[in-house]
Write a protein that binds this DNA or RNA. Sequence first.
DNA 1: GTGCTAAATGATATCGATAACAGTTTAAAA
DNA 2: TTTTAAACTGTTATCGATATCATTTAGCAC
Lengths: 344, 344
Amino acid sequence: MANHTKQPTMMDVAHLAGVSPMTVSRALKPNTSVSEATRKKIRKAADELGYVLDSTAAGLSSRRTGFIAVTIPSINNANFADTLSGLSQVLRETSLQALLGYTDYDVAEEERLVEQFLRRRPEAIIVTGEAHTDRCRKMLENCGVPVVEMWDIPSAPIGQVVGFSNAGAAKLMVDHFYQQGFRKIGFVGGDPSRDTRGQDRRRGFLDTMKYYGLETHRMINQELPPITMHEGAASMKKMLETWPDTQAVMCVSDLSAFGAMMECQRQGLKIPNDMAIGGFGAYDLSEQSVPPITTIDVSANEIGKIAANVILDMLNADVQTSVQQINAIEPTLLIRDSTMMKPK
Amino acid sequence: MANHTKQPTMMDVAHLAGVSPMTVSRALKPNTSVSEATRKKIRKAADELGYVLDSTAAGLSSRRTGFIAVTIPSINNANFADTLSGLSQVLRETSLQALLGYTDYDVAEEERLVEQFLRRRPEAIIVTGEAHTDRCRKMLENCGVPVVEMWDIPSAPIGQVVGFSNAGAAKLMVDHFYQQGFRKIGFVGGDPSRDTRGQDRRRGFLDTMKYYGLETHRMINQELPPITMHEGAASMKKMLETWPDTQAVMCVSDLSAFGAMMECQRQGLKIPNDMAIGGFGAYDLSEQSVPPITTIDVSANEIGKIAANVILDMLNADVQTSVQQINAIEPTLLIRDSTMMKPK
DNA sequence: GTGCTAAATGATATCGATAACAGTTTAAAA
DNA sequence: TTTTAAACTGTTATCGATATCATTTAGCAC
């Protein structure tokens, strides 16, 4: 029963059902005026032939592909995965489909990806972050469909924005450390040249430290993102070697925070009394670890949902009402044992 | 400079460059016979107009969309993410693009997704696992393009297979437990009705236990997949309440293994002397935790790479040489401290 | 300069659907 | 029964590219 022949077309279905192709086209969509009788007849014919609609042709003809292009830095990141889940969840209710690509934290790769995606004629495009190559930015500006930047609040947005202030989020953590009485506070982050979000968190850290009049030299810069558990551990090791009097460390992600905490554990340091640790991202890990890790919840899932809804609104608005709009998310601090000094 | 007008077409580029559309089409592809002079002229015209190729139209005309459809159960899973990375890495070298969808461990959702994907006329389709609805299986059999099932070794494969025996992998762990002298061994897994891979691991566990003549009643079934850290912790708690004499526990994933280990830590149990723990999947987490967790490495990244290469081979083979072929991966046991009893 | 092959370009006919409009039937209202 | 609007179905013209074949031009040996 192998199907070595060509796939059947709408025409084939039409012939078998004894109607015109146009009627078949209508019958296969909801909310079209086709009598129940012919619709049933057509469905039967389609089933019989094993007909599958060709959305390539449909897209060309209707100028609507049903694609929403989405680029994220990495798939191997629970936060971005959460955002995607939220996004997919909203899109699933529609006839839209996400077209997903990873940039690997590389703007050149992002450019490549965006170009490839625009060829697919998506109905909207969502990119992560504000860092783009010039050419990429130009393509996005001229692509003629809604653009959403998420996860940052760009200083020069291209279209709509769904994000939060990474610097502000970092401030939350430093405030908390300060309130808990920590003064010698370190920072563990990635190479500032590449990870713009990490860079903003670093800036927020530094600004807030200065605000409190605290020393800001306890900085460890790891490799390129993503910052792994392993790198977190290595950073903590270095921190302890270089500045043994460090009381607390803010890590740019929960993964590195966990790695750092494990390193402390290996060295026999008690968390938080010997060393307090703060993370970023509200991963499951930070909640389940012993002790649980204080972290910053950026509502990754929410970002995805909002981004999707923003897109849906813009597509419905039809008219080019693309008022530039910033949808700001408020990060929240989740205080856990890793930063709550215990009385002896 | 807003581009409110329609996007330019190949025809526009042709006119501006003073050539025929066909020449433009050729000029924009590598390895086509177009003189360097006209090619340059055309590229200039294209740049000037901000022309972006329409792959929808190209796909319709050439009958090659450049899509490889891929379904995975969950994006929020480091193993599947690794597989995708491997896959993307190979595809990036080609002109093919992954079209990705999540089934949420739900065969009905898979069916929906596969149908949606087939409409896009992908050049091949990769699905995760062997469990499909009847209709889905039929669609895959008749879709006329290469099909690859990955992550399992199905008893009735549809096309090619890139996977491993989950039962065999589980056996590795039980063997190891046995060799280490553990006899009262428990199992923590998900609801067997849904997670077929987890089910196979369970089967492998049970078979091997029976082989050694060990009791097999220490089984905890958690909710639907994915099995989280939290559920791992809850399972361990239940295990300790129900069968306090349990010496070792095999968990269906590293996440639940970690959760279980944290629960032990909270209860003051020492790993591995009071309780040995084995995981599955070789996540970073199991390597970085203290103690590190013995786990099974299934080469998730490799699965993706091989699957991609299998696809590339089949596409090149052109002819319907689709000999059914099983590409079996050998899982390996990574022995870590969580199962290595320390002498007192 | 002739002849011949290979490279470069163009003309035409699709690919498989849908938009837009036209025509026909049906059913409700008068 | 007639009128009239609504529901249904069909016709025709694209959507934007590429395959294929035809034609022209260029390159090269003799």
